[in-house]
């Protein structure tokens, strides 16, 4: 298993998609920083300054930590899943299409071990992406925006019902927790992409199908019309990762949704393993 993991990680680390994912995340941070500054400049000039004075009255309303939180939340919902789906979706279908899967499958390697090692490497990729992204955001936040306590406000993040504050050191610990909870939540997407990668003959189809399912549920889950269906969407349960940023972390609820995500992940992996074990490798 260790050999498999080493080989799979070597393959992933040298793939273009792996390098692209980090470059894209870095690009997104730059975009966030640009958007943040243009927004601030526009809203604090002339009349806008008067209207938004409560927003900017305290210079600590936006600081490096707030910037990092906004950047993390926005990218987690829409950007990270794309890279996770692309990496996981290509694991089996991509190798099958390229023909390398049959080169491996005629070796004395259990197919389930191969699948699980591929998934483990995807999970490591997700963790590295999250850690890189959190670290980069905090660094950029520190250098370009400033440091301070993490101020929390109700609004677009849908994180708290009333304003709160998390002390700086505590907030940094929360970001570290978010790296782990975010990775755990994103493994659901990775497991579904892995399952589709087993089912589909093409990596592109597996990736697009995963993203389509994720985005459909994500968007539909935010439309009031589907209120009653929302609890049944895995995207709803994935939202638990942000609970670490609540002033009082709701541990019971966090464990509940983390367990549900775990059930989705292992369930999808089980289905993937069962199908892959019986799959005819015809490519």
């Amino acid at each position: 298993m260790f050999t498999l993991l080493r080989i799979e990680f070597t393959k992933l680390a040298r793939s273009r998609g792996f390098q692209l994912s980090f470059a894209a995340l870095a690009g997104f941070v730059a975009l966030m920083l640009w958007g943040f500054y243009t927004y601030a400049e526009r809203k604090t000039g002339g009349q806008a300054a008067e209207q938004f004075r409560y927003t900017y009255e305290s210079k600590s309303y936006f600081n490096g930590l707030t910037f990092a939180l906004y950047s993390l939340v926005f990218s987690f919902s829409l950007l990270v899943p794309v890279f996770v789906a692309a990496t996981a979706g290509s694991q089996i279908a991509g190798e099958a299409r390229a023909g390398t899967l049959r080169m491996i499958a005629v070796r004395p390697v259990a197919r389930v071990s191969l699948l699980l090692s591929k998934f483990a490497v995807v999970a490591l990729h997700v963790l590295l992406m999250m850690a890189f992204f959190v670290g980069l955001n905090l660094l950029v936040g520190l250098l370009f925006v400033g440091w301070g306590d993490l101020q929390l406000y109700p609004g677009p993040l849908n994180l708290v019902d009333e304003p709160g504050r998390i002390a700086r050191d505590d907030a940094l610990w929360r970001f570290a927790c978010a790296t782990l909870t975010g990775t755990w939540a994103m493994l659901v997407v990775a497991a579904i992409a892995t399952l589709l990668s087993v089912v589909c003959e093409s990596a592109a189809v597996a990736t697009v199908a995963t993203i389509a399912i994720y985005l459909a549920l994500y968007v539909v889950g935010r439309v009031e019309f589907f209120e009653q269906l929302r609890p049944y969407f895995f995207t709803t349960d994935m939202d638990f990762w942000r609970d670490v940023f609540k002033p009082q972390i709701p541990w019971q609820s966090l464990y509940h949704y983390a367990s549900l995500c775990g059930a989705y992940t292992f369930g999808a992996l089980l289905a993937a393993a069962a199908l892959f074990d019986r799959k005819d490798i015809k490519s």
Binding site: T3, G99, T100, R102, M103, V106, R107, P108
Partner: peptide, 22 residues
Amino acid sequence: VEAPAFYENFTGRQNLTMLAAL
């Protein structure tokens, strides 16, 4: 089996070493 396929961005030696490791 049929046309052999390899990891294109690896060298021939690396491909062999990797497959043999399995």
